[in-house]
Amino acid sequence: MGHRALVGYRRPDGLYDLRYSHWGGTDPSLAAEISDDTPLADGAVSASLLTDSIARDRILTDYLDPCVHEMLFLVAPSAGYEVTPYHVCWLEWGDGHEDGRGALIGTEQTDEPVRTWFRATKTTLSDVIEMGVLSQRAAQAYLEARVCEEYAGVVYTYTGTGSGSAETDLSGAASESPVQPTSLPEGDRLPPDLHEWVDGTPPNDSTSPHDKRDDERDSDWT
């Protein structure tokens, strides 16, 4: 089955060339294997492009299926092949074919194993849903809030359109982004790369399936 990951290489124009790694999602260790001498981690990253010249947010909405992928790595060749890894969390329940709500958690934000915490929390919520204590919608809203508040996660909606032309990416830059936090972490706990995901993002996410519960704190992101 593999542990799937996507690897985005930042271009001089600020867009990304996107590649696939079948086993790179096992853990963040792939980041240490990518360098100037081994940009494809000695074959761990596919030489074939999934797409080129794609905007960062479009990687999430068009290609990063949270039900399939476990990690995302963003590579900056101009900065000595510095790599920033992210855990990918699937925030929904179901067969995964039409449920594309996901979240990114930067791996440098906590020493606690993120995956262990997330799986345990989601399993507990599954039991709560089956017992009829919470609806699936309420459980998802709670899970998103926990991811954002405790791990400064960035929530997004995967649409799977898979279209990544540079022209489309640039023209869509001024429109409202579906990549947004659901609930705000207290204080300034975002690492620099996660700040970039949310800078300039409107406070309300029109793609969210649930009501926002923290509108009074949305101004912290602007």
Rank of each mutant, 00 (worst) to 15 (best):
T116M: 07
T116E: 14
T116L: 15
W117A: 03
K122T: 02
T123D: 10
T124Y: 11
D127F: 15
D127A: 08
D127C: 03
E130H: 05
M131Y: 12
M131P: 04
M131S: 11
M131W: 13
M131Q: 13
G132Y: 13
V133L: 11
V133Y: 09
V133P: 02
L134R: 01
S135A: 06
S135L: 14
R137P: 06
A138M: 09
Q140I: 09
A141H: 02
L143P: 02
L143W: 06
A145Y: 06
R146S: 13
V147P: 01
V147W: 08
C148V: 11
C148K: 10
E149I: 10
Y151W: 15
G153F: 13
V154Y: 07
V155K: 00
Y156R: 06
Y158D: 04
Y158E: 13
Y158M: 05
Y158I: 01
T159P: 03
G160R: 07
T161L: 15
T161E: 15
T161C: 13
G162I: 03
S163Q: 14
G164W: 02
S165F: 04
A166K: 11
A166T: 09
A166F: 07
A166C: 03
E167L: 11
T168S: 12
T168P: 03
D169F: 07
D169L: 01
L170A: 07
G172A: 09
G172N: 10
G172C: 05
A174D: 13
A174I: 11
E176Q: 11
S177G: 01
V179Y: 02
V179Q: 00
Q180F: 04
S183K: 04
S183P: 11
E186R: 01
E186V: 08
G187R: 04
D188Q: 00
D188L: 03
R189T: 05
R189W: 11
L190M: 04
L190V: 00
L190F: 12
P191I: 02
P191M: 01
P191L: 00
P192A: 05
D193W: 02
W197P: 00
W197Y: 02
V198R: 03
D199P: 03
G200R: 11
T201D: 04
T201G: 09
T201R: 12
P202S: 05
P202A: 14
P203I: 04
P203R: 07
T207L: 05
S208H: 13
H210M: 09
H210E: 02
K212L: 14
K212T: 14
R213M: 12
R213T: 15
D214H: 10
D215R: 14
D215Q: 13
D215H: 13
E216P: 09
E216L: 13
R217E: 14
S219E: 15
S219C: 09
D220E: 14
D220Q: 12
